[in-house]
Amino acid sequence: MNIHPKDFRMREGDDVNRKKWPTMVDPVYKSKDQYKSLLEEHVAKLAELQRLHYASNRHAILLIFQATDAAGKDGAIRHVMSGVNSQGCRVYSFKAPTEAELEHDFLWRTTRDLPERGRIAIFNRSYYEEVLVVRVHPDILESEAILDAPHHAKKVWRERYRSINDFEKHLGVNGTRVVKIFLHLSREEQRKRFLERIDDPQKNWKFSDADLKERKFWKDYAKAYEECLEATSADAAPWYVVPADDKENARLIVSQILLDTFESLDMSYPKTSAKRERELQVFRSELTG
């Protein structure tokens, strides 16, 4: 089975019904060995394309991961990007905003970490938390000094969707390709993964009491994700809804999405001018003479 990223890509204007999105699809691998082989192949290609991306210095790539707890964001980033040169790629994780960050608009703290040309930035969670977690827990708006927010919540979300769309459009016009991954996990699979974290001493550190508390808001998060993805998936900055119940399959899909993104860019190694070629030949003569 070949991976076709367009099968997971939301088109601009698509209606969203999270219940109809599969959390499991037929795997693209037939065995664990084949999975490892396919992932190694993808990782090697990504490493090669990342070198070209860095040398070309024409575009930047912003890769955003959003998901419910235990959906596999960390694992996907770690495995898929394992061959990429760390000098050209940075990963940023965004937790609850600090007091200083709350003194700015909701896009400010992530804007500081946008990638330069030739680089990749990976946001493990992002400014989208401001229309997801904050929407599920609207009392957070009080700490953000949003005037009359509890009485005008719908207006707040509409305005934030518009700000996000305008922001991502601005990035695209200026050479940053925005790729957004939603790892779609089922409630039952999340339960299994939580139990695994509790039962395995080496994974105890992954489990937080807060994870269980947030699980109680599953339906609220589902509604928030549906509206968010419908409002913010654009042709220039699409959302990819990746079935996440099978971690290995999800990693292969994510890596293919990133490969397709690289291959869609206008990249080439810098050409050497005639003057520079003559200089290089002089240097060569000195080294071999």
Rank of each mutant, 00 (worst) to 15 (best):
P201W: 02
D209N: 12
A210E: 14
T176L: 10
E188K: 11
S186E: 04
L212E: 13
E214V: 00
S186H: 07
N204C: 09
D209M: 04
D211G: 10
T176Y: 04
Y221H: 09
Y221G: 09
F217W: 14
F217M: 08
E188Q: 11
D200T: 05
R197F: 01
Y225L: 12
Q202S: 12
V178M: 03
Y225A: 08
V178W: 00
L212V: 10
G172Q: 03
E188I: 11
E226I: 15
F207H: 05
I198G: 02
I181N: 01
S233T: 15
F217S: 03
S233C: 15
A237T: 15
W239H: 08
W239D: 06
R177T: 15
D200I: 01
P201C: 08
K206D: 04
K223P: 10
P238W: 03
A224G: 14
Q190I: 07
D200L: 03
N204I: 15
D220V: 01
V173I: 14
H184P: 02
D199A: 15
Y240H: 05
D200R: 08
D211N: 06
A236R: 12
I198V: 04
K203P: 03
F217D: 07
R187K: 10
E196P: 04
F217V: 03
D220P: 02
E226G: 12
F207G: 03
F194P: 05
S208T: 14
K180Q: 07
W239K: 07
C228R: 12
R177D: 08
E227A: 14
T232C: 04
K192W: 05
V179S: 04
R191C: 05
Y225M: 14
K219M: 11
H184A: 04
P201K: 07
D220N: 06
K192N: 09
H184M: 01
Q190F: 04
K206N: 05
F207V: 08
F182N: 00
K213T: 11
E214R: 02
F217H: 11
K216N: 08
K223Y: 10
A236Q: 14
A224N: 14
G172D: 04
L183N: 01
K216T: 09
F207R: 08
E188P: 13
Y240M: 10
F207M: 12
Y225K: 11
F182S: 02
K219Y: 10
A224K: 06
L212Q: 04
K219D: 13
W205H: 04
A236H: 12
K192Y: 10
I198C: 04
L171G: 08
E227L: 15
V179G: 06
G175L: 00
K192H: 06
R187Y: 00
Q202P: 08
Y225F: 14
W218F: 01
E188H: 14
F182Q: 00
A224T: 14
F207P: 00
D209Q: 03
V179Q: 03
K213D: 09
L185V: 00
I181L: 09
T232A: 01
Y225G: 06
